[in-house]
Design a protein around this nucleic acid. Sequence first.
RNA 1: GCGUCGGUACUCAAGUGGUCAACGAGGGCAGACUGUAAAUCUGCUAGCUUCGGCUUUCGGAAGUUCGAAUCUUCCCCGACGCA
Length: 435
Amino acid sequence: MSALNFKIEKKLDGHLGRAGVLETPHGVILTPSFVVVGTKATVKAMTPEQLKEIGVQVTLANTYHLYLQPGDELIRDAGGLHTFMNWNGPMMTDSGGFQVFSLGVAYGKELSKVVSITDPSLLIPERSTALDGVPRLATIGNDGVSFRSHIDGSLHYITPEKSIEIQHNLGADIIFAFDECTSPTETDRYQEEALSRTHSWAKRSLEEHKKLEELKSAKISQKNLLERSSDEGGRGARPSQEDIFATFLPQALFGIVQGGRSEILRKQSAEVIGAMDFDGFGIGGSFAKEDMSSAVKWVNEILPEEKPRHLLGIGEPEDLFEGVENGVDLFDCVAPTRTARNGTLFTKSGKINMMNAKFTRDFTPIDEGCDCYTCKNYTRSYISHLFRAKEMQAATLSSIHNIYFITNLVSQMRQAILDDIFFEFKKEFLSKYEK
RNA sequence: GCGUCGGUACUCAAGUGGUCAACGAGGGCAGACUGUAAAUCUGCUAGCUUCGGCUUUCGGAAGUUCGAAUCUUCCCCGACGCA
């Protein structure tokens, strides 16, 4: 009994790609789809209404951040994330697994999720010199991860069970197993260790999730009984926290495949995670840009076809094409929103930096022919002015455009699959788009 | 007219004999950003450069000194005070 219902509408001939429909308790997601990231229960600079108007179907918030601030119990008592942030569409939460990486080995370093093998210095294993005195905010144990809060320095310990408990309090439709997102700089040996940890955490996440789902459905029937028996005089009493929790809709849990850059480990992970009773799967971890698509392919050839797959944290146009072609249904990424706030915008011919001098007197739209609100109403010159003047509108108008660009791109890919023109569309787009 | 305090790179502003092509901030120019420590971060910002250096700079001119943005003299400009 899953909280989700996934139906594949059409497959990409001879490839893993597919277009589908994913039903969640808060609505339908047409896949492939891009998930907009709203880490702290808000997509920065955007209102939910603006997201809806753009065509955003689903958003993703973060367990770790919300646990620290304002606290997952507060959000539970507010009625869950949907109510709290006024987003009534499908929602996901990440487990905090990425923070194991970003606040751990990657802390204070120029280390990103996707590396280029043309920069070999990044691929030198660091763990081999271990016991580095480098400060980090996350340290990994076998049972869980210690986090030093980036807000106030307080110490927190997150286990798979804790992550799932928090995610149940937050109440998103799709939640993720607690995993270890490894650095691309780790040795094979470390990747192997980390992977077995991620696998055991996946199992624990699943067990905790099932336990909480059962508890929730038991509470719902208990609550129904109570309501029926006390229908006459029971009005006006404030619902208890447990009652609120019991109103939460069923949640789906995705397991996460890891394995770094190794084909053997990726496939092994897909076997292990794919065999567990998850509602869908995340593909996580570090990739070298050049072999991301083959890694995704290894994994998706093994994962059960009838369940949805989410490629975690990926969102550059060229990567989205590779993902879709290789059987990914969902993507999330901070790139469109973060880069928008930092002044870089997508266009059909590549990214442009609005702070460049050449745009100050450019009275054309960001991307000629784009149907987004920003392009229909504003010029490059104006956006450029807003950035230079450090006006907040710069972030909003730019985010609207970038989110539209990426969201629309993925939904065009979906349509292209349905219309049997995916590869033509891909070729056409990439021929004009310069990285 | 006399007196005092000032005049430093695009701007503000440190520096008051060698460690100064000159702190810092802003601005400008570029770059980065992939499950958000991010409305953030990095680099450059006199000229030339084979990137090791070389050349010309601190209102102007002339001095003192081995050596001056820093000391002296005169001049120009600004603020304030006294006439």
